[in-house]
């Protein structure tokens, strides 16, 4: 690991000031990705601006019309919140199924949504080809590499690295927004716009600008949240990244689907909303066959790589299975109201 300067601001304004300008400085929150990548010499910041001293960013609220999560709220704390579990089980489950208890105790929500890829070619500098780490150097995965853990949605000829996170899928499914502040002032970014596709510049992963800090993540409450579910398929029961996952929510009118939300994890370059699959469901009578149809639709545009073709049938089944659970929850909710 390189030597680096270390700063501990106590206000957002101070943090922005420290991280802006020409210096090669990055924000540090829980550090569960950053420190890892620094040890591997993949990220080599000249300075770290540790924002965990900004206590005002730790709070969160589960309101009747809106959920608001401070960027520095801990994953473990929010995962344990009973009101959130009732308001939106998918958001709770996606946190619970991420990483390990030790990591969730340390990791913060703002950092979690910016988690970087687990592509082995990105993480090991012995591979000279990685457009994300070293723009223009090529892609070892696409050039004869192992692609079993790579994106079948959203990738480009320059990069097929997969976005590994869980919580982001539940956020994008429910139209979350990200509030930020930076040298140029404050703004609100639709969650779906936060991450950018790799295209021909995979080194750029988000639209955040230098010195721009996430203040909060906010989610408008919709009925489909209550009958939501996050299903994560993985070979290891815990502490493993998704081979495929789905965050789904349903709002039913009788057995007719009024609103459907579907997002995919473990399969795409960025958090992935499966709009076409949602369209399959809306206005139609729910059934297992319909759930399977939606699952297939979610992957209609997928591009299988040499070792990742299994993700298409697996992902389709995971979407269908998640919808079955969401449907059961919607039915149980309807019964409860009767």
């Amino acid at each position: 690991m390189d030597n680096f300067a270390f700063f501990r601001p106590t206000s957002v304004a101070e943090a922005i000031d420290l991280a802006s300008g020409d210096q090669k400085r990055d924000f540090l929150a829980g550090g569960t990705t950053m420190v890892d990548l620094m040890k591997l010499a993949v990220q080599r910041p000249g300075g770290l601006v540790d924002i965990t001293g900004i206590k005002e960013l730790e709070s969160y609220e589960i309101g009747p019309g809106r959920l608001r999560f401070g960027a520095l709220a801990r994953m473990a704390v929010v995962a344990d919140d009973a009101d959130l579990r009732e308001a939106c089980p998918a958001l709770t489950e996606a946190l619970w199924k991420a990483a390990s208890p030790q990591l969730r105790n340390v990791a913060r929500l703002g950092g979690n949504i910016l988690q970087r890829t687990r592509c082995p070619y990105f993480r090991d500098t012995a591979y000279t080809q990685c457009n994300k780490r070293d723009p223009g150097s090529g892609c070892a995965a696409l050039e004869g590499g192992v692609t079993s853990l790579h994106a079948i949605l959203g990738g480009s000829e320059h990069c097929v690295a997969m976005y590994p996170g869980d919580w982001a899928q539940a956020l994008i499914a429910f139209d979350a927004e990200v509030r930020t502040r930076g040298p140029g002032g404050s703004r609100t970014i639709p969650f779906a716009d936060l991450h950018v596709l790799p295209g021909d510049s995979p080194e750029v992963e988000t639209i955040l600008e230098k010195g721009e800090i996430i203040i909060s993540i906010e989610v408008p409450v919709v009925p489909a949240m209550r009958a939501s579910h996050y299903l994560k398929a993985r070979d290891r029961e815990s502490y493993a990244f998704a081979s495929a996952s789905a965050a789904v929510g349903l709002e039913l009118d009788g057995e007719t689907v009024k609103d459907a939300r579907i997002a995919l994890g473990g399969v795409a370059s960025v958090p992935w909303r499966a709009g076409a699959a949602e369209e399959v469901l809306r206005g139609r009578t729910f059934s297992e066959a319909l759930a399977r149809e939606a699952g297939r639709a979610a992957f209609a545009d997928a591009t299988p790589l040499e070792h990742s073709a299994y993700k298409i049938p697996l992902g389709a089944d995971v979407v269908a299975g998640a919808l079955m659970t969401a449907h059961a929850r919607a039915r149980a909710g309807a019964k409860g109201e009767d």
Binding site: Y127, E143, G145, S238
Partner: peptide, 20 residues
Amino acid sequence: TRARFLNANIAEYLIPVNAD
């Protein structure tokens, strides 16, 4: 292609955890 072991770490080389 590069004749290397790819997952040389215990995050990606999976061993059972308690839940398994």
